[in-house]
Design a protein around this nucleic acid. Sequence first.
RNA 1: GGCCGGUUGGUGAAGCGGCUUAACACACAUGCCUUUCACGCAUGCAUUCACGGGUCCGAAUCCCGUACCGGUCACCA
Length: 549
Amino acid sequence: MTNKDLANVIFPNITKTIEDYEKEYPKRNLSDGACVTRIAPSPTGFMHIGNFMQAVTNYVIAKQSNGIFYLRNEDTDKAREIEGAVELIIKTLKQYDMCPDEYEADGKVFGNYGPYIQSERKEIYHAFIKHLIEIDRAYPCFCTTEELSEMRENQETMKTRTGYHGRFARCSRLTPEEAIEKINNGEKYIIRFRSNGNFDNKFEFNDLRQGKLFLNENDIDEVIMKADSMLPTYHFAHVVDDHLMRTTHVVRGEEWLPSVPKHIQMFEAFGFEAPKYIHTPLIMKKEGESLRKISKRKDPEASMSYYDELGYPTLAVIESLMTIINSNYEEWHTANPDKKFTDFEFSADKMSTSGALYDLMKLDDISKNIISKMTKDEVYEESLKWASIHNDSLKELIEKDVTYYKNILNIEREQEKPRKDIAKYSDIENLIWYMYDDIFYNKDKEYEWKNITDKQEIKNILDTYLNKYINLEDKETWFNNIKLMCDELGYASNMKEYKKNPELFKGNVADVSTVLRVALTSKSMTPDLFEIMNLMGIDRTKERYSKIS
RNA sequence: GGCCGGUUGGUGAAGCGGCUUAACACACAUGCCUUUCACGCAUGCAUUCACGGGUCCGAAUCCCGUACCGGUCACCA
């Protein structure tokens, strides 16, 4: 009996050959230099910011080379699969305007290189495994879990390298006859790849980010097909899928680097060219003195839903990630303010080498800049979209009077140097509530008086203002009136003079303005007072001032 | 423990043997401008690149060792 017989015993119904599949999934017809990238999540839960960062990287590489960015659902671990996980990832990608060119969802396949769900590719994997068995590069292994862990313990006490290799690889020495007999006896088995490597040999591997690396050859006979589901392990699926789907660049987490020798070996066994690899740093978080991987349980910001809930513009999240992906992104962006992030020339070797700390402050800064450059209509639309899902009271506020809301947003906006106070849509409510009378009068608030706190003096300023000086014609007249009032009441209307001889005055025009501001809004920090007063109108201003006592 | 990688300010980092008295950005501080805050502008913030040794006329940059940090060693991806 031969390996061919063995292969037929294991896969009696597999008739397609790997050549058939080669023809079915031919090399993609793309322009020179076009990159085919992918995001290959396993559907085990939420969308992690690290996965998302890889998605952004893949997306940028594909888009800027006129290539293809596709999504492959790696659902070979049925035990860990969580329903709806991939749908969430696709939804997130679409939300961020990074929809894959090819993917599969809701029973529909988009693209010619599918299925894009691994559990639907079983037959393909089987054909490839069958081929390996035929050429004696794979074999069934009948070792039980118990035997394997016993072996491991032995290896540990003997202080030898653990794993199924060399003389420890018992089943690798089974003849086809023996193997077939065991199978016929109903013994459970898995399929292992037959390594031809020598751990003491090094080979050169070129990672596009890390550069030249010298890695030990793999000598472990890795499991390539699992017993119960007959589905492939990650390693094998990676080799088959990325070849058949004609992936040119694999961007994946650094945690995969140690298994590169296995993957290279498998590509070689088939005579396939391996893709180019970019192993990306993990996103880290500082905890006390030490760094650790950003974690789903401890760090809410690890989940993409965090940014959604707080209402960060999608572009802000992407750009903040871009600054980690390539730290020269920011400089490029200031030099090319009108270009899209996909136009940025990504270079793998500029990726950071150590684990990046995700900086929420930086995100806020980027986000403030982005929102400040939006028109009032854009902010209105985006904030309403956000509020409709995440904040009922803001939604109500907006819809009560859309024009008024837009006018509020427009204070110090749509000008050359716009105000930057909104980092995320969830900030808005707290920034504008005092513009609404029903909230203003019902809210339990404190007036943030500054230098002038004497009730009598405040009353005096407000009364004088209301009686003689209130004027909303234009900003200049308005402010001139305030200055005139300052002169009358003994406050300095000119800051320079005040600074020269502060003792000559009761205070200055800034102090007086602050009183007018706080009395109107209760806050010492607001956008331009004239515009606020103008928006509210004289009657509402009088009303609010009259409530101060 | 084996293998691989990393270590530049509060943070992200640039630099890859002389152009560095270590870029840029965030944060922070101060000043200016200003009706406050913010915006904007200006200035300051690592005499030093984990530590020790070596190579060299010259090192953050190359080599060796030490320490620390991270990844990985599953029928998980």
